Computed example of a mutant assay.
Amino acid sequence: MDFFFNDYKKDLIHAIESLDWKTMKEIADRIIELRNNGNIVYLIGNGGSSATPSHSAGDWTKELRIKTICLTDNTPSVTAFANDTDYTNIFKGQLETFLSKGDIVIGYSGSGNSPNVLNAIEFAKSKGNFTVGITGNYNDRNGGKLVSLADLSLVANTTSMERIEDVHLIINHIIKEYIKATINASQRISKV
């Protein structure tokens, strides 16, 4: 049993240590710019990869005063698009209604190959919006198609979906804390 816990811990630590910190800062800086311009961040994902965006939408809205909407939380729209068109349209359909110039779309997918996430990211890019992919190496796919489709991508370097999802929440908390520290520092400077 100790072997299992040690293995989980080692793999999780490796996945965290191998994150691209420069890219994470770049994503956070883009979100700060979005906040200053009054635009909206849209978060999308399936299953566990929808729970993290939902959690983060609450954090970013309350603590950072960033307009953040998790499109998986709009159950009537998700089920209407799935039923009346196709499941691959559940996020794209909502973005066709809500997306404005300057908004950012962040897609979460452990495999990087979720068709509804890819469809929405592709749509956002076609409208000139900035896109981010948060993915993993599930089944050794190196982040899947999402990595090359999104403008910036972060890949959790583990093949375990559970640890990918662990890392995705850690990424969101790091981004939130970095933004909060940056905002607080800039407020201190402006008071001087």
Rank of each mutant, 00 (worst) to 15 (best):
G38P: 01
G144D: 11
G48V: 01
K125L: 06
S114Y: 10
M24V: 04
S109E: 09
F91P: 01
I189P: 02
T52R: 10
A181Y: 06
I175Y: 10
K101Y: 08
V41K: 11
S126N: 13
E122Y: 10
M161D: 10
D59E: 15
L19K: 09
H168S: 05
D86W: 01
N83R: 07
S50W: 09
R30K: 15
K9F: 15
V192K: 13
F130V: 02
I44L: 10
I90M: 12
L169H: 04
I16F: 14
T75W: 11
E33I: 07
L99I: 08
E96K: 10
K125D: 14
S153V: 01
W60H: 07
T75N: 15
G47H: 07
W60K: 02
S160E: 14
L71M: 00
T75E: 15
N116W: 11
K191C: 11
V117P: 02
Q187C: 06
A156G: 04
N36S: 13
G48S: 12
L43V: 09
I171F: 09
D7R: 12
N142M: 08
N157C: 14
A185K: 13
T158H: 04
L118F: 05
I27T: 06
K127Y: 06
G144H: 06
S56K: 07
L152W: 08
V167L: 06
D59A: 01
I90Y: 03
E177L: 08
K10M: 12
L118R: 12
D86P: 01
V41F: 03
T23F: 02
F3A: 12
W60T: 00
T182G: 01
I183W: 00
S18K: 15
Y8V: 00
R163K: 15
D11K: 14
T79F: 05
R188W: 06
G102M: 04
I134P: 00
I31L: 14
S111L: 04
F91G: 04
I121L: 10
K22W: 06
A57C: 04
N83Q: 06
V78K: 00
Y42C: 04
L146T: 07
S49A: 09
N139A: 14
I31D: 09
I189A: 14
L71K: 13
A185F: 01
